[in-house]
């Protein structure tokens, strides 16, 4: 049984903002099937009583003081920009709304 369809992979590629050709999608769907088949065994061992670990060390409450430290210069900030104008990052037109 295929665990994941090409359409699902296409939706994942959309969420991940990666353009993919149909050939790539087919290929990836097949690979994902194999990989998911192998990793799904994580569901076998841990019961509801096992708490999840998201962080290896039990640290809490790590805060910094509210103190201003030097920023980059705008030149440094923009140094890697593929395009810039008016001391801002220049990007293709943004369609769609912000959250």
């Amino acid at each position: 049984m295929a665990a994941i369809s090409r359409e699902e992979v296409a939706n994942l590629a959309r969420l991940a903002r990666i353009e993919m050709t149909d050939v790539e999608l087919d290929h990836l769907a097949t690979e994902m099937d194999v990989i998911l088949g192998a990793v799904a065994r994580v569901q076998e061992v841990a019961g509801a009583e096992v708490p999840p670990t998201s962080h290896p060390l039990p640290l809490t409450n790590v805060f910094r003081a509210d103190v201003v430290t030097p920023s980059l210069t705008p030149e440094e900030a923009l140094s890697g920009a593929p395009a810039k104008a008016d001391q801002r990052f220049k990007v293709p037109q943004i369609l769609g709304d912000a959250e």
């Binding site: 910094r64 509210d66 201003v68 430290t69 920023s71 705008p74 900030a77 008016d86 801002r88």
Partner: peptide, 25 residues
């Protein structure tokens, strides 16, 4: 005075990209 996750200033109306650093960029 400073941002949520870095030490950049939070002044309103500053010149563009003058209050940025590796973290907030």
């Amino acid at each position: 005075h400073s941002k949520m996750f870095c030490g950049c200033a939070t002044e309103f109306g500053a010149e563009p990209n003058t209050q940025t650093c590796p973290v907030c960029l």
